[in-house]
C-alpha cells in the first residue's frame, strides 16, 4: 500500500480551494526574497496539509512582516510558534503557523536553526509571540535575539536541561522545596 498520500484539509477541499492562492503566494515570496527562500514543500507533492516554506534564519522577520501586511497574503493571525528537534544538522526547526482571517487559508513558515544559534524574535510583529518564544526557549533551549524577557515559562527558573529535546532523559527528578519569590524587577 502506498502510504505517501496527500493530506486533505479538515474540510477535505483545501487543495481545490486554496491551491492556486498558495501557488501564487509561494511564487511571490520567491520573487521578492530570492535566495532567502531555501526550500518549498507543497501539499500533494509532500505529505503536508499546507505549503511549508523554509526561510533563511536572518530574513524571517522581514518575511513575516511581508506576509502579515502585504496584499494577497494578509496572514494577520499568528496561530502558533513552535519548534521541532530533528536530531540532524541543523538540529532545530522553528515553525510559524499562520492563518489569514480574510482569505481563510493557512500557511507554514519554517526556519532551520543549528544548535547554539539565535533566531530573531518576532515580538515586534506580534506581541503575542512573547510567551510562545519563551516556551520554545524553555523546552528546546533555542534563544531568540531581541526578545524583551527571555526566561523559562513552564519549568522552574532553576531547572537544568530542556525537556523537549530528543536527548533529554524520560525519568529523573529535580526537586525545589521553595517557591519562586516575587521579582520586583519585573514590576518596574
Amino acid at each position: 500500500m502506498d502510504i505517501r498520500h496527500p493530506i486533505p484539509g479538515n474540510g477535505g477541499d483545501w487543495i481545490t480551494r486554496f491551491g492556486d492562492i498558495w501557488k501564487s503566494q509561494v511564487a511571490e515570496l520567491q520573487k521578492v526574497f530570492g535566495s532567502a527562500i531555501e526550500e518549498v514543500r507543497m501539499p500533494v507533492v509532500y505529505p503536508t496539509d499546507v505549503p511549508i516554506v523554509y526561510v533563511q534564519k536572518a530574513k524571517i522577520l522581514e518575511v513575516l512582516q511581508f506576509v502579515k501586511a502585504s496584499e494577497g497574503f494578509s496572514y494577520g493571525f499568528l496561530a502558533d510558534i513552535t519548534a521541532t528537534d530533528e536530531t540532524a544538522d541543523p538540529r532545530f526547526e522553528v515553525v510559524y503557523q499562520l492563518f489569514s482571517q480574510t482569505q481563510l487559508c493557512r500557511f507554514r513558515l519554517k526556519v532551520r536553526v543549528p544548535e547554539g544559534e539565535d533566531v530573531p524574535s518576532v515580538v515586534t510583529v506580534w506581541k503575542g509571540a512573547n510567551w510562545a518564544e519563551r516556551e520554545i526557549f524553555d523546552m528546546f533551549g533555542i534563544k531568540f535575539s531581541g526578545h524583551p524577557d527571555l526566561r523559562r515559562i513552564l519549568m522552574d527558573e532553576r531547572w537544568v536541561g530542556h525537556p523537549l529535546r530528543k536527548d533529554y532523559p524520560l525519568k529523573g527528578y529535580q526537586i525545589f522545596t521553595d517557591s519562586q519569590a516575587v521579582d520586583p524587577e519585573r514590576l518596574k
Binding site: I3, H5, N10, Y46, P47, D49, A79, D80, Q97, R106
Partner: peptide
C-alpha cells in the same frame, strides 16, 4: 504515515490545534 499537519478546531475557548 510520514507527514505533518496542523489540525484546528473551534473549541469552546478558541482555536485548539
Amino acid at each position: 504515515p510520514e507527514g505533518e499537519a496542523y489540525t484546528q478546531f473551534e473549541a469552546a475557548n478558541g482555536e485548539l490545534g
